[in-house]
């Protein structure tokens, strides 16, 4: 997974230089396979193994960085406009409790579908 250094910094206070961080992450179990600079931005290529599904996201890696370095993990606030239960309901039913012990679904309303903004495209 490609992790831009800047994006990572939004979720955790990193005081280390990218090289140092890469070394610390690798020695901690999250192998940084490559350290590149693309368009002036530092990119870490993190090899995520099957036993660390929790790291399959920028937030996941940030949590790991926080655990390894002791830096503060910053949860970004993103509260919904209203928590009131809406009128829309989506019917769900678990057919096999062994294969699927738990299933969760949430309805989010008030979304406009349009082309992603440039900054989002960059990030993705």
């Amino acid at each position: 997974m490609k992790v831009p250094f800047d994006w990572l910094k939004e979720y955790v206070d990193i005081k280390l230089k990218p090289r140092e961080l890469a070394d610390k992450l690798s020695m901690g179990g999250l192998e940084v396979g490559a350290l590149e600079e693309v368009n002036g931005k530092v990119l870490l290529e993190v090899d995520i193994l099957p036993n660390r599904g929790d790291c399959h996201s920028i937030i996941g890696v940030a949590r790991e960085v926080s655990a390894i370095t002791g830096a503060k993990f910053k949860r970004l606030a993103c509260p919904p406009k209203s928590r009131k239960a809406g009128r829309r309901r989506v019917p769900c039913r678990v057919e096999d409790k062994d294969l699927c012990p738990r299933y969760m679904a949430k309805v989010i309303e008030g979304i406009t579908i349009k082309e992603s903004p440039e900054w989002l495209k960059q990030r993705l």
Binding site: R19, A22, D23, S26, E31, V32, G33, A34, L35, E36, E45
Partner: peptide, 13 residues
């Protein structure tokens, strides 16, 4: 030091 071969990490697995 970091190069193309080790992809900037300084180590080769």
């Amino acid at each position: 030091d970091g190069c193309r071969i080790c992809k900037g990490t300084g180590w080769i697995e």
